[in-house]
Simulated assay, not measured.
Amino acid sequence: METCALCGGTDWRIIEQVGATRVVRCACDLVFVTPTPPRDVIEQRYQREYYRAWEHQANARRRIWDRRLKLVMSLCPVPGRLLDLGCGDGMFLQAAKARGWTVTGIELSPYAAETDTGLEVRRGEVWEAGWPESSFDVVTGWHVMEHVSDPRRVLAELYRVLRPNGWLVLATPNLHDYVFRAAYLIAHLKLPSLYEPDERELHLFHFSAATLTGLVSAVGFRDVRVGFDRGAAAEWGKRLVNAGAYGWYRLTGLNWGIGLELVARKPASPAGTAGG
């Protein structure tokens, strides 16, 4: 039986079920899909058709990458070595490279990893790449952690390959995306599902600010901050909804937007073992 990536437990309740696939909420509050789909099933979701939609969103996505690069530069003003987890079509890496960063990507999708971008992109899981310890100054992962089969193992490896005092920057969908859920209910007269067998993307984990913070902290990261992801949507309709949610966030401090944005740091002197 699978165990929870955050607490290691099996005390959960089913909140959605489609055939043999269940979406469960653990006693620690992490929400995830079980059983985890086989690797080949996950890989096959991210082929040519998946990335075709990105071509029509190029301008919007470029603005998103520019905003995210500004965040990275605010943390580490002097460009160094950057690893992008789930780098996709490489657009963020290209933007970072143009600003002086030495960039590397890791990508599970065979199609994306083999696309000729002129960048160093390795295919597979991040722990399969075999980078030496402390190889990177910054690691980014833009809406990737919700797709991976083992987020704790991924984060433990990211911790290992970051240098002491290096930065981790993540964005993920927000489990508490109440503004989007309300808009979806108005438009479709039903609430959105957390799992659909024929969905374009496989969201295997659904993080709240608390569970994402807990998972990142569990492998050793410190100085964890979670805020509003203003780059969570490229489609104009979702951008509009997220803009409304951002206004609510500024007014109340409640993050009911589409995405979470996390910044954390690997301590100079690790306090414990970053294990999975």
Score class of each variant (00 low, 15 high):
43 E>M: 13
144 V>N: 12
88 G>D: 05
102 T>H: 05
144 V>M: 09
133 E>W: 00
41 V>I: 11
61 R>P: 03
92 F>E: 03
66 D>Y: 02
116 D>S: 09
115 T>V: 12
77 P>Y: 06
107 E>R: 08
80 G>M: 01
60 A>V: 12
131 W>R: 10
94 Q>R: 07
88 G>Q: 09
61 R>L: 15
112 A>L: 12
70 K>T: 15
96 A>R: 01
151 P>E: 11
57 Q>D: 09
140 T>K: 07
71 L>M: 10
60 A>Q: 10
100 G>P: 05
118 G>C: 03
122 R>K: 14
147 H>C: 06
143 H>Q: 08
108 L>I: 07
132 P>G: 08
70 K>W: 05
113 A>G: 03
52 R>F: 01
143 H>K: 10
124 G>R: 07
129 A>S: 13
130 G>K: 10
116 D>W: 03
60 A>R: 08
75 L>F: 07
84 D>C: 10
121 V>D: 03
56 H>A: 14
104 T>L: 00
138 V>Y: 04
122 R>Q: 12
69 L>P: 04
106 I>L: 10
132 P>W: 01
49 E>R: 06
40 D>P: 01
81 R>W: 11
88 G>C: 14
58 A>H: 05
116 D>P: 04
49 E>K: 05
127 W>P: 00
99 R>V: 15
141 G>N: 02
100 G>L: 13
93 L>E: 09
65 W>A: 05
53 A>N: 05
101 W>I: 03
132 P>C: 02
139 V>H: 11
38 P>S: 08
85 L>E: 05
52 R>W: 01
136 F>M: 12
146 E>G: 10
95 A>M: 13
44 Q>N: 14
128 E>N: 08
52 R>D: 15
124 G>P: 05
112 A>E: 11
83 L>V: 07
146 E>H: 00
76 C>F: 02
151 P>L: 13
77 P>Q: 02
66 D>K: 03
105 G>D: 09
109 S>A: 13
83 L>R: 14
83 L>N: 07
